[in-house]
Each structure stands twice: as C-alpha cells, then as structure tokens.
Amino acid sequence: MIHDEDILELSEPSLSPSEKLFLPQILGGMVTTIVHMGKSMVGQHRTVQYPEQKRELRLENYRGVHRLNRDEQGRVACVACFMCATACPANCIHIEAGESPWEDREKYPVKFDLDELRCIFCGMCEEACPVDAIELTPHYDLVGRSREEMILDKEELLSVYDETRELKPRKNPHITGYEGTGGRFHANGDKND
C-alpha cells in the first residue's frame, strides 16, 4: 500500500552549464564508444560463439536437464517416495512405483517420466529428494523433434547421469543406504536433514 506521503514527484536533473552545451558530453560519449569499438575489433568482445564456444557455467547450481543418479552398484538410486512429484510445481514428474527387487529398499520406480517441456527448472525436486537421486545438470541444450521425445523416461534420465557423472559427481553417494527392513533410512553422510 502506497500512501500519499510516500510519493515523491521527480523532475529531470538540472544541467550544469557545461552539460547544457551538449558538445563536451557528446564528444565524451563518442570517445567511450570508439574505445569500445577498438577493443571489440582486437577481439575483446563479449560474444560467445555458441556452437563452437560454450559459456562456463557454475556446475554446482546451474539448473538444466535432470538426471536420475545411480548408486555405487549402478542401480537407480531413486526409492519411489514421490517427494519430488509432490514438490513439483509444474506437475511434470510421473512415477510408477514397484516392489524393489533389492534387499536394501522397499520400492523402486518402475517408470519415471519427466516432461522437460512442462518443467520450469525450479530445482524443487532436487531439494525434495531424500536420497539425492534426482539432480539438475548443467546441460541446457536439450532438443527434440516432438513433444513425446521431450518426455524423458527412466533410462534416458539414467543415461544423462552416465554422461554427466564426470562433469558433476553425485553430491552424496552414501545417503541411500538402508539398514534392515524397517523402512526407515538414515543419513550416514554429512547431510543434515
């Protein structure tokens, strides 16, 4: 709420005599631009020649294409807890859970579909994931010929992990360990949750 007394009427700044003459200011501006031009001509321009050059991204927090992490044994790290699907504001994650064939967890995702066209790349899924199974990678050049192609399934998301594991190692590989069959998990890494 803006009150009347908060409103301040503004005017243009009054010009000093030398500013009123315009000419010094114009010449100053032209010197500025010619300096920039000279720098650009010798190659100091800011353009990134995209397909050949790529920008250096901050790997730890750039939010690009998603990946599903694998644990140490190469299995999908996801435990199908639906936390990411619940947290997702764009409703782009679709999980079908099944009984886990492995000893250390109850469930695992039979299907894990992620619609990259619906996704708004907010990173909430990554925040929500209790086992750090879903992460966003610095990959931003995702293309496809159809809308169906842009819905990544589990295998595709896992292959994104295979491609990017050297670039961006998994944050905390120790977190997925289950102990016993109690259905409870606990963190034995340094993650505080």
Binding site: E9, L10, S11, P13
Partner: peptide, 13 residues
C-alpha cells in the same frame, strides 16, 4: 504545480 520541491533523479533519488 508541484506542492513539494521536486526530487531530482540521480541526485536525491
């Protein structure tokens, strides 16, 4: 006409 003295962009505001 403005009742209050006008602020100037870049100087007071």
């Amino acid at each position: 006409p403005a009742v209050t003295p006008l602020g100037q962009i870049g100087k007071e505001v």
